[in-house]
Design a protein around this nucleic acid. Sequence first.
DNA 1: GTAAACCCCGGAGTCGCTACAGGGTCAAGC
DNA 2: GCTTGACCCTGTAGCGACTCCGGGGTTTAC
Lengths: 144, 144
Amino acid sequence: MKIGELAAATGCHLETVRYYEKIGLLPKPPRTGSGYRAYRPSDVARVRFIARGRSLGFSLDEIRSLLRLSESPDLACGDVDALARQHLTEVRLKLTQLQRMEAELMATVERCRGGQRATCAVLQSLGEPDLPTSPAISIHAPMG
Amino acid sequence: MKIGELAAATGCHLETVRYYEKIGLLPKPPRTGSGYRAYRPSDVARVRFIARGRSLGFSLDEIRSLLRLSESPDLACGDVDALARQHLTEVRLKLTQLQRMEAELMATVERCRGGQRATCAVLQSLGEPDLPTSPAISIHAPMG
DNA sequence: GTAAACCCCGGAGTCGCTACAGGGTCAAGC
DNA sequence: GCTTGACCCTGTAGCGACTCCGGGGTTTAC
């Protein structure tokens, strides 16, 4: 199975597959005579594992530990669980911040009913001193 | 006012302030005899405007247009409002994705009650084929 | 006088990809 | 046999929004 097929089977770009190999998340596959990567079906499972972890918001480093844990059969489930729980905490924190952001934006936009610039609620809101509540948060969602 | 004071007054790192200057979001301030940046109080307001925009999830490019809009008083509020509304839509989309992520993580973690590796729900869940619902989303929140 | 705290600059590193340039390989159609 | 197009290779650079580092100069406090 060539890289394009693997990519199609997992929904990843093939550049992404190569990237995972480069950073050591995927083992280097054997090559055909002409140098093409030759994957086995188990590689599909591994890439799916990674993709699924990403879709749950795990970082590639976290996924690396999850993979290691999943490959050492003498380890208890507890480590995996701890990682997931910690991650859940982080997700909830981000949720809270995002909800606060939504409420504020909504209030801001609500106040601005096509009025004049001098009274624009959006700009006023941005000019106000910082909220006591919300720390700076940046959210970047590549969804293409 | 020196850059360290500006940073303290706005809650930014001073590298961040320099970065904003570098990309043209902050005007180049005058310098003292020894080359130190000398800021005026109005610069605090501008950096706060940026920080607040960031905390609302605006990109630096969006903030750049907001700043431009806020400085050209003959423009209507509509443009600003449209930007904020568009942004609200994006925030809501991210919220939905994050909520889905939370629900799934929670369900996964709940199933794992200190069981054995062979039946670890977290790993099982990661090994399953991809969800039909959730596209890949990555969230990065620098909160130092 | 000297040590600590501040400031300068330029450049590299972070994360998770994505895109590009400049080539090689392979299968199908004529 | 030759061409066309789809696929593959490598290496490198780019994105956004910072953050950190090295190697220096300056100012302030004791």
